[in-house]
Amino acid sequence: MSIQHHLNNDLLMAYAVGELPEALNLVIATHVSLCDECRARLESYDALGGAVVEHGYAAVADGSLDACLARISGLGQEQPRKAMSRQTKSVFPAPLMDYVGGGLETVKWRPIGMGAKQVILRTADTDASVRLLYIPGGAAMPDHGHNGLELTLVLQGAFRDEGQRFARGDIEVADASVEHTPVAEEGSVCICLAATQGKLKFNSLLPRLAQPFLRI
């Protein structure tokens, strides 16, 4: 089950330089946890960062080295990690687990209609948000348009959108120009991590009224 849908380079580089909102960072870190291809691309942007650092220079203060040596003599070293079995067998990779505070079974879902459920994950963002979605097999993702970027990462099950299939580890990157309706594959629940930048605007009246209460 190899991953078919990846992050684009612009997002990987923006993540490498540390200039994305927290909500997007979380989805990217979670995808990279599952995807060696994107991890390798990300690390090549880190390598470019190494070259940029190597290029700059600002003299350190007198006594800087001595101060640092004094500091480290009080410090232990972290043990190198020993080989152990991967945790990624869990539905949630480590960065997501940190935000949820546990695995899938600890999620406190809130119904959002038509059998779908969600939970908003807390971030310090003002113009981006991230949530977990639970979509029953055969159901459509909550219908919304949005003003900015939208990342949808599949963690369990699969959805189809615009004739393409997205399964565990696959990520769909959409921007405001895309009107699309992902539908969970028949038969099993689809769990996704979705981040949006910019406020969502719902296409029907009721969800729009409900928006402030649901904190979507």
Binding site: G18, A29, R39
Partner: peptide, 13 residues
């Protein structure tokens, strides 16, 4: 700046 969660470490180091 915005908090930046890291990808899961490759646990075997």
């Amino acid at each position: 700046k915005a908090r930046r969660p890291e990808p899961e470490e490759l646990t075997w180091g």
